[in-house]
Amino acid sequence: MWCDASPHASTMGNDIAIRAVGISKRYRAGQRGRYRNLRDAIAGALSVFGRRGPTSACAATSGATHAPVTDAHGYFWALKDVSFEVKLGEAVGIIGPNGAGKSTLLKILGRVTRPTAGYADVTGRVGSLFEVGTGFNSELSGRENVYLSGAILGMKKKQIDRKFDQIVAFADIEPFLDTAVKYYSTGMFVRIAFAVAAHLDTDILLVDDVLAVGDASFREKCLRKMEAVIGEGRTVVLVSHDMTTVNALCGRTLRMEHGLLVPPRAGPFPPDGARRTGADVALDSARADRHGAGGWR
């Protein structure tokens, strides 16, 4: 049931949706601002577009219990030789403390950033849900934002046309469809933003801890939607700090620490078969402490 961390655990069949082999990601640690002004640029002019470890916002979030590991050259390895496979139609949870590399891994799978070493073969269209409200513009109306955000998240106009009514019904904001989003309440904004993302019908869905939005009843709706997505046989990779969500939705869990995939700890999870309903989870998650991917513009 648990992840087999060895890279060649199974042969590449056509039932594999994601196969990551030896993925590593390096950031230049603690040097934000370096190479950012013209004097330095001129000094390093020849290497401006050469290969170099970029500084990153991700590095700044590494507030784990141990200091992030920098190597002798001042690099910080957010991911080190991470290998795993996800089968078609499987729902896999990734858990671990802040700074463990979960989000970096998801961003690589979502093609937001590239690995420093290793590779991943991803089969099928990928949808990324890394925050609520990606691509929303506060000056535009709800209706316009459904199209804009949908397109940015990877939907075709036809698909959005087809799903428009479902999205609006899910968000429950019909009377305000033509009002600029900047006049929406926080709750309304979160509902419409999540509704768009939830109706992405890609083969693979990468979700970074965005299920804890809105009030209790809307959260339950989100979780039920995720259950439905998984039930349809689509592949889901879910990063979360919230064990209850992961346990409720995912058949398998990977644990990360300090950029490595690690064997699961004994104890903290209920045994297999103890999966609970989304409603239980929604109630539990009301008290869950969550950070990270909840921001929006």
């Binding site: 799978l109 590239r114 690995p115 590779y119 073969d121 991803v122 089969t123 099928g124 269209r125 083969d203």
Partner: peptide, 8 residues
């Protein structure tokens, strides 16, 4: 479904 290789 197309397979895409994500690499450095």
């Amino acid at each position: 479904m197309k397979t895409i290789r994500i690499k450095p």
